[in-house]
Structure formats: C-alpha cells, structure tokens
Design a protein around this nucleic acid. Structure first.
Lengths: 208, 208
DNA sequence: ATATTTACTGACTAATGGGTCAGCAAGATT
DNA sequence: AATCTTGCTGACCCATTAGTCAGTAAATAT
C-alpha cells in the first residue's frame, strides 16, 4: 500500500500547467479564469503552480506566447523557400493556412486578444510584432510579387492585405460565437480566394 | 446651504445605469466588470443599482439587448422599402452599414459575444435570432434577387453571405484589438464590395 | 407646517479568489 | 539504512466584490 501521493516531475510541470491554463483561459478569458481550476485540471496543487508561475498574469502571458511563437514562423518559412507564382501561393499554402486556423489553437489566441487585449497591451504588441504585422506584410509582398510579374493588375488590395484574410476572421469568430451552428469554413475561404484572384486578374478595369 | 444630496429620478435611472454599464462591460467584459464602477459612473449608489437590476447578470443582458434590439430592424426596414438593383443595394446602403458598424456601439456587442458569449448562451441565441440570422438572410436574398434578375451569375456566394460581411468583421476586430494602429476601414469595405460585385458579374466562368 | 411615501444611500456581510508558507515526503546521496 | 535535498501539498490569509438592508431625506399629499 503506501501509494505514493505524488511524483516529482520538475521538467514536465510547467508544460502541463500551461496546457491546463490554456483550456481554462480559452473557456473563461483572463478575468473569468480561476487559478484553482487550472491547478485542478493540471492535477497539481495551487502552491506548485505558483512555484512555476509568479502570478496569474504571468501564467496568462506564458500561455499566449506558447501558442503564438511557433505559429507564424512556420508559414513565413514555407513562403520564403517557395518558388510558386503568386496565384499558386494564394490558392495553395495560404488557403490551407486560412482554412485550418479557425480549427487550431490560434483561434483561442484571437479570442483572447479580442476579449483581454486591452488589459494586456504588451501581449497585443507582441502579437502584433510576431504575428499580425509579419503575416500581413507577407501577404502584401505576395500580391506585389504578382503585380510586378504581370500576373495581377494593380489594385488597392496591395495596401489592404486585411482583405485577403477576411474570410479567415469571419470563420474564426463564427466558430467562437456560433460553435454549434454549422458553416462550411473551408468553402468560405476557398470561394473568397477564388473571388480575390479573379479580381486581381481581371484585365479591363471595372467601372467606378 | 443644505444642498440637496440627490435627486429622485425614477424614470431616468435605469437608462443612466445601463449606459454606464455599457461603458464598463465594453471595457472589461462581463467577468472583469465591477458593479461598483458601474454605480460610480452612473452617479448612483450600488444599492440603487440593485433596486433596478436584480443581479449583475441581468444588468449585462439588459445592456446587450438595449443595443441589439433597435439595430437590425433599421436595416431590414431600409431594404424592404427599397427598389434598388442588387448592385445598387450592395454598393449603397449595405456598404454604408458595414462601414459604420465598426465605429458604432454594435462593435461592443460583437466583442461581448466573442468574449462572454459562451457563458451567456441565451444572449447568443437572442443575438442570432434577432441580428445575425436576419442579417445574413437579408444579404442572401439580395444576392438571389440579383441572380434571378440576370444581374449576377450563380455562385457560391448565395449560400455564403458571410463572405459579404467579412471585411466588416475584420474591421471590427481590428478596431477592438489594434485600436491605435490605423486602418482605412471604409476603403477596406468598399474595395471588398467592388471585388464582390466584379466577381458576381464576371461573364465567363473562371477556371477551377 | 406636518405627515406620508418611497427613491436613494452607504455601511455592512458572506463568499470568492489570488497569493503564501510551514511542513511533508519522494527521490537522490552517502 | 540513514540523511539530505527539494518538489510538492493543503491549509491559511486577506483583499476584493456581488449582493443586502436599515435608515435617510427628497418630493408629495394633507
């Protein structure tokens, strides 16, 4: 008998706690999250949690950064090594990326930025610098590449990369708010890209 | 001397309190909002607040509903009495609506749906029934009208009205998260509508 | 003026929740 | 086997906050 009451697992604890915290923050946001619940979900006492994370705030930041950091680099990487035409890139890797984001953990980060960003401005800055600005710049550069190669005509889209990711945003917000109500997000994204490419390739300039 | 310490204003109080609550919930979300702060901002004691609203929860719902209710009806109204072509409607009233929403109070409702919707499912239902579903149905019907009049070709857009409002969503989220970083939301919306109309009017079907 | 009604106050309570710490026991060292 | 180190527990503290209520004074009636 004399079951061991716990194991010492110095290495794994931070990750396990962060993982549990991700779930809890994801569901309740920062203010609504309970540190006790995080500890419980991580199968750990609250005291231990505070041994690895000084404050709730720090835990929150750690959790968000954990998700952000690896994310964008992957896509950036995939581009810079790519030799596809602009259209191929939009229809291929970018479409894929936008389709899976609403299902991924990044969705949660977006939710947290919206709900708690105003009280964690440094997190917003970090998100901006390491994800948003890079991602948008990437898209702009793709469009520009298409324009200068003669593939696309010159449009306002070059300066409005937000237009490209718009369906991803809708799909993400939809999943957050209307999780149960169905929406074919893949089709949403691919139709939008279809529309976009068609617009960028149209020869004669449209009226107005 | 003998300054009157307060005035009795039975009629106006609920609105004034709801107004203050709107600001506070808007800034902090449901869990982060403090009832004391609402009372303070409304220039009222907490006791009085609880005379008009039974719980924080009820106050929250009242606030959200106050903003939702009048909103959609206005647009629906404007449509049913309109005799414009589909394109005119998209470029006119709808563009206008989508341009001003990110600046309006409705933006706050969207934020609250995202951040606190999961813990107030009945509010989400209410929002769905009185705003989202109606608005999307409206847009679908406009597209359909254009299709059946021969103005537009048949595309997936008819079944994906979310595609039409996508730039509004981006603009709204942008304002919430990156308030300080500039974005020409009007141009975002109008360019998108331009793109959309162009797509809907293109004669020859695109490859793929 | 005086009495009556009730909108309103502010001090209170009970409970919650972030954060702490003395002590315990798992595992390493000898 | 005895000792030491430290990862870990859980009971505790206290600031905060949703919600209450006895009493006060503004407006109204008499």
């Amino acid at each position: 008998m004399a079951e061991t009451r716990y194991q010492r697992r110095k290495e794994e604890r931070p990750d396990e706690i962060a993982e549990a915290a991700f779930d809890v923050f994801s569901e309740h946001g920062y203010a609504g999250a309970r540190v006790d619940e995080v500890a419980r979900k991580a199968g750990v006492s609250k005291g231990l949690l505070y041994l690895y994370f000084k404050t709730k705030e720090e835990l929150f930041k750690a959790v968000v950064m954990r998700v952000i950091s690896p994310r964008m680099d992957a896509l950036i990487e995939r581009l810079s090594t790519s030799e596809q035409s602009a259209e191929e890139f939009l229809r291929g890797p970018l479409t894929q990326f936008m389709q899976q984001l609403p299902r991924s953990r990044a969705r949660v980060v977006i939710k947290l930025m919206i709900s708690d960003g105003s009280r964690h401005p440094d997190l917003v800055d970090f998100y901006w610098e390491s994800v948003a600005s890079k991602g948008l710049a990437l898209i702009s550069s793709i469009i520009e590449r298409g324009v200068s190669s003669g593939e696309f005509r010159k449009t306002a889209v070059s300066e409005l990369p937000q237009l490209v990711i718009a369906p991803m945003m809708v799909a993400t917000v939809w999943k957050i708010v209307f999780a149960d109500r169905s929406l074919d997000t893949d089709r949403l994204v691919s139709t939008h890209i279809d529309m976009l490419v068609s617009y960028l390739k149209t020869e004669r300039s449209k009226t107005r």
